[in-house]
Design a binder for these strands. Sequence first.
RNA 1: GGCGUCGUACCCAAGUGGUCUAAGGGAACGGUUUGCAAAACCGCUAUUCGCCGGUUCGAAUCCGGCCGACGCCUCCA
Length: 458
Amino acid sequence: MLRFYNSLTQKKEKFVPNEEGKVKLYTCGPTVYDTAHIGNFRTFLFEDFLKRVLIALGFEVFHIMNITDVDDKTIQKARDKQKSLSKITDHYTKIFKRDSAELKIIPADVYPAATKHIRGMINMIQKLMDKGHAYKTDDGSVFFSIESFKGYGSLTNINVSKMRQSKRVESDEYSLDNPRDFALWKAHKEEDIDVFWDSPWGRGRPGWHIECSAMSVEYLGNHFDIHCGGVDNKFPHHENEIAQSVCALGTPFVNYWLHAEYLLVNGGKMSKSLGNYYCLSDLYEKGFTTEEIRYILLSTHYRTKVDFRLDKQHEAKKVIQRIQELKSRLESISSSVSTGFPDETNSFNLALENDLDSPKAMSVFFDWIRKTNIKVDKNKLIAKKAAEGLNFIAYFDSIYGLLPKKESIPQDILDLVAEREEARRNGEWEKSDRLRNLIASEGWLVKDTPSGSKLSVK
RNA sequence: GGCGUCGUACCCAAGUGGUCUAAGGGAACGGUUUGCAAAACCGCUAUUCGCCGGUUCGAAUCCGGCCGACGCCUCCA
């Protein structure tokens, strides 16, 4: 039974999609004003993991990830760089998609951009106006009235009257009915340069939260299954989304809210001033591979903070090699294709079905690896079981994505190996060791097995 | 001030009332194996789950208090 921890109820709940066998998924995407960092990717990778598990369990997933290409930050960047907004956002959208692909993240079905859906947002704001959930201020902005929605605060358990008021709101020059009200439409200001659209309330641009409500309705309908994001999006972003959607549409909005915890770097929060702010390209420069990054981010449960430490790379390397090692051992035993799976696949699935318990599922997998290695050592693994084992490895990898593509071995390395084999046959151990070191310095590891030498990437 | 999360071995990390004298991985050490290695395997590293009480036949798991780390309440994955 598939169960998820639902932020809305703060409990693990059985997952039942609205439509049997199909899942409608909305994940909050990047604001394309800068390169996404690994903290962002922790969340995106969790969402990818969720999606891969759903697919593995036989669901048909329709996935939307928005691209926020208009907001304070993107506009500020455009202004600072003296470039058009779309020039900035196109650039960072490209980088985002490239990074996602490099991390083996399965692309969303649609990546709707906020600026392409202004009409839908205006329509929704109009509905909120019509129903008395929103009001216009003197300058032509439109705000959502929190008082008009008694369910406000249900996601984060926040009692609006008890909240500390921020300086920002206190000093806000707008005449708000309630200082907690949030903007649906922001009247055009000078600093917004040429970024504006016409609306029934005058020139302006959408507020911070309306895009997700409007675009999720457009692609997934009023009422869909899962909405994900990072924990920091719970308030106010998701809280406001719920308010907007429920009030405008009059229907239930999202059944399951899933939130990924933060990523820390060396035990602390990432910040540019501390210099512990990693983008994917930084990690690749430091010699990390995609698979190593995936391992580090997936070896902790998504609702637990992950501490990203560079020294975890070693562990990741070892683990990946361990899987590859068994895979190649099984390949040499298996002679045909099988459709079966080892019994452990069941426990593996059970762990995944229990709120995506990734570390637990890994432990089941590694336990199976050990047991299988014992059988191989004792020559007790028959070809059929080896083929089933390969299925399990492939299945595991369809979810975790930890196995790198096979690298082709350069000819000069192959020559060195052949030369070393020759030396070994002649008992020239000194020469053989010298060649092994030489091969190692080129990044390849030679292992002598009863069936001859084997090469692997170091 | 309000809301919430977490504290498990040297490190990482599951488990959330009995199968737990606590999974799995990394690391160290000692073995088997090997020309030597590597890989693989075996042994070893928590009678104990931050501390103190309570509930219970029984708690790492529930309740209360304390200590410590952290998050949100302002844009943020």
